[in-house]
Amino acid sequence: MTIPPMNEVVPPEVRERLDRLVDELPYNEEIPRRSGDVAFNHAWEIRAFAIATAMHDDGAFDWPEFQGELICSIQAWESDNDTTAGWSYYDRWMEALERLLQAKGMLDTAELDRRTAEVLSTPANSHHHPPAREPVAVVPPRAGEGRPNE
């Protein structure tokens, strides 16, 4: 993939294609929206959404297959829960995606459980640099060039 310019804007046709996928989803009225557009409340929801749409786009599965799993997941949740407390469309989304990928032999639930536990037990900073409490560069007024803080 070539790196697009920094101020890249996603082409409208990609957005439209995704909107069409969303329109075909079951329990469409349950999808969180703001001003009519699909809305997300957590970063992981976008990531889960992106994994499913990217894999479908890549030919890993047909959209109706995912729809079918999503219907099952939502119906099962509804039959097991009397209230709307705890309801989350994207929890069901993740469950549907997991089950579909497992059925396709692409993902093993036990492996996913193990990896999830690893993620949860990994300290937030383990792969990163320590906190930098001073600026890494300061460009003084009326100067064009950076002066890295050594």
């Binding site: 993939m1 996603v10 995704l18 992981w44 976008i46 990531r47 889960a48 959404f49 992106a50 994994i51 749409t53 990217a54 894999m55 786009d57 890549d58 890993a60 993740m94 995606l97 997991e98 990928l101 692409m106 993902l107 492996e111 996913l112 990896r115 999830t116 690893e118 993620v119």
Partner: peptide
């Protein structure tokens, strides 16, 4: 769990990280 799923799928070359970034 989402992060774990992504890392497994990317590791197995079932999807490219870039493709997920792009959809995100």
């Amino acid at each position: 769990r989402v992060k774990a799923m992504e890392s497994i799928l990317v590791e197995k070359n079932l999807i490219a990280s870039d493709a997920i970034d792009y959809m995100s």
